[in-house]
């Protein structure tokens, strides 16, 4: 497969005073050109750290300690900071969760856009400005010429996220990592942004990793879905397959806790208990403390089981029988 990005056995650990925190522990997946991968999990499951590992922005005490991140065949984990920087914002871009916090409050929007262009392209200020204006127009910001002169606080949350998206897409990146970019927004704006990012990504053939804790957000967006729990991918497969016939009890629980029309009147199910602390992770399956199906076998490390050619899960007691 001709993947834009291929993550193999990625391990990112945080070396805190209290101990080693395995935020990302043996994670593998790949995203092809123009494809959308939904990376789903509760907060603390390691999904954001996975995103930061790819773009090379894991801060101390965190460190990528193992595995490889292949971008068009090149291992990003082995690049120097300088080489990584030339890719960052150019070929690989990222947008963040809270649009209120992503733009520097004391710099004008044009400053923040022009510097992003000039970091990767040798163009004049005037031309960078023109390109910034066009980029703002493309993400649906009205009268972009005037808005260039504004400060971030003069925009609404949704508008700010559009600015951030415009900045991320300035150089038509090959890979865009979106870290819950709609969580902080109103539902109506969420849908707009979602649709716009999807369209832009499709137009340029950008591979998209959409990180979220909300399955319903990516249900209509993602081609494939990876479900993360406590630093590991517990289920991975075609979006339709994962959503319609989840295999891992955790995925099943996540789907059950999403309100939907055809379950009207039913009680919303929720997953009992809390995400375990990554410092005191029990051996074996990390989910077993919250799992109704858990038994003594779960104290072993669950192997990866294949459900169908494009659907795998790590569980001893899957919701449907795994063909041997």
């Amino acid at each position: 497969m001709n993947a834009t990005i291929e993550v193999r056995n990625l391990r990112t650990h945080f070396f805190t005073r209290a101990g080693v925190l395995k935020a990302v522990d043996d994670v593998s997946f790949s995203v092809a050109r123009g494809q959308v991968l939904g990376l789903v999990g509760e907060s603390g499951s390691g999904k954001s750290v996975t995103g930061f590992s790819i773009i090379g922005l894991v801060d101390p005490p965190g460190r990528v300690v193992g595995g490889s991140i292949l971008y068009q065949g090149r291992d990003l984990a082995k690049l120097s900071e300088r080489e990584m920087r030339s890719l960052r914002g150019d070929r690989i871009a990222m947008i963040f969760q809270d649009p209120m916090m992503t733009l520097n409050p004391v710099l004008r929007v044009d400053t923040q856009m022009i510097e992003a262009i000039q970091a990767h392209a040798k163009v004049s200020r005037a031309e960078a400005r023109t390109r910034s204006r066009d980029a703002l127009g493309m993400v649906g910001i009205p009268s972009p010429e005037e808005r260039l002169e504004s400060y971030p606080h003069q925009f609404s949350g949704g508008m700010r996220q559009r600015v951030a998206i415009a900045i991320a897409l300035l150089h038509n990146p090959d890979l865009l990592i979106a870290d819950e970019p709609t969580t902080a927004l109103d539902v109506t704006i969420q849908a707009q942004i979602l649709a716009e990012v999807q369209k832009l990504a499709a137009d340029y053939g950008t591979a998209l990793i959409w990180i979220t804790h909300d399955l319903s957000v990516i249900a209509g967006l993602a081609d494939r879905i990876a479900v993360m729990y406590a630093g590991r991918i517990v289920e991975f497969g075609e979006a339709a397959s994962v959503l319609d016939s989840p295999v891992h009890p955790y995925t099943n629980g996540l789907i059950g806790s999403v309100p939907s029309r055809n379950k009207r009147g039913e009680r919303l199910r929720q997953i009992p208990g809390m995400t375990p602390s990554l410092l005191t992770l029990p051996p074996g399956c990390a989910f077993r403390t919250r799992c109704a199906r858990a038994d003594a076998t779960c104290e072993q490390e669950p192997p990866e089981g294949t459900v169908s050619p494009d659907h795998v899960a790590r569980c001893f007691h899957p919701m449907i029988a795994v063909p041997a």
């Binding site: 922005l57 914002g89 963040f96 809270d98 520097n104 409050p105 992003a116 970091a119």
Partner: peptide
């Protein structure tokens, strides 16, 4: 976040520190 975003844009450390 805005510092991380500035770094994600591929800015040099000098620009991040002395401007942002």
């Amino acid at each position: 976040d805005f510092i991380k975003f500035a770094r994600a844009k591929g800015l040099s450390p000098a620009r991040v520190i002395f401007v942002h």
